Simulated scan of single mutants.
Amino acid sequence: MNVPLWFALAVVGYLGCKLIRPPLWLVLVLLLGGYLIADTTLAPVIDTTIK
């Protein structure tokens, strides 16, 4: 079964927010921070560190 990555991330994110109940500000900060870092010169460094 092939599941698109965006769908799998959406399901995991929804379940994580539903079960763990983090504060809304923390969710927004993490989403905004990830979006902003992805477009900087740090993105390749983070990518190689993770892999």
Rank of each mutant, 00 (worst) to 15 (best):
M1V: 09
N2W: 15
N2F: 15
N2K: 14
V3T: 14
P4G: 03
P4D: 02
P4L: 13
P4Y: 06
L5E: 14
L5H: 11
L5N: 09
W6I: 09
W6Q: 10
W6S: 06
F7Q: 06
F7L: 12
F7G: 05
A8D: 00
A8I: 00
A8T: 00
L9H: 04
L9S: 15
A10I: 09
V11H: 12
V11E: 05
V11S: 02
V12L: 13
V12C: 10
V12Y: 05
V12F: 15
V12Q: 01
G13D: 00
G13Q: 03
G13T: 00
Y14F: 15
Y14G: 04
L15N: 05
L15I: 03
L15K: 08
G16T: 00
G16W: 00
C17L: 14
C17V: 12
K18C: 08
K18R: 14
L19N: 09
L19W: 12
I20R: 07
I20G: 07
I20M: 12
I20W: 15
R21K: 15
R21M: 11
R21E: 08
R21N: 10
R21Q: 13
P22W: 10
P22F: 11
P22K: 07
P22T: 06
P23W: 15
L24V: 06
L24W: 12
L24P: 03
W25K: 08
W25E: 05
L26W: 12
L26R: 05
L26F: 12
V27F: 14
V27M: 09
V27G: 03
V27Q: 01
L28A: 07
V29A: 07
V29K: 01
L30H: 05
L30W: 15
L31A: 07
L32T: 09
L32R: 05
G33E: 03
G33Q: 10
G34V: 04
G34K: 10
G34Y: 04
Y35V: 06
Y35E: 01
Y35G: 01
Y35M: 06
Y35P: 01
L36P: 07
L36I: 10
L36Y: 11
I37Q: 00
I37M: 10
A38H: 15
A38E: 05
A38D: 08
A38N: 12
D39F: 14
D39R: 13
D39Q: 13
D39V: 11
D39L: 10
D39W: 15
D39C: 05
T40L: 11
T40F: 10
T40Q: 08
T40D: 03
T41N: 08
L42T: 02
L42N: 04
L42A: 07
L42E: 02
A43S: 14
A43G: 04
A43M: 13
A43T: 11
P44V: 11
P44T: 08
P44W: 15
P44E: 06
V45Q: 02
V45W: 13
I46S: 06
I46P: 02
I46A: 10
I46Y: 03
I46T: 08
D47A: 03
D47V: 04
D47I: 06
D47Q: 08
T48H: 12
T48R: 12
T49W: 13
T49V: 02
T49Y: 07
T49G: 02
T49L: 08
T49C: 03
T49E: 01
I50Y: 04
I50V: 05
I50F: 07
I50S: 01
K51H: 07
K51E: 01
K51T: 01
K51A: 02
K51C: 01
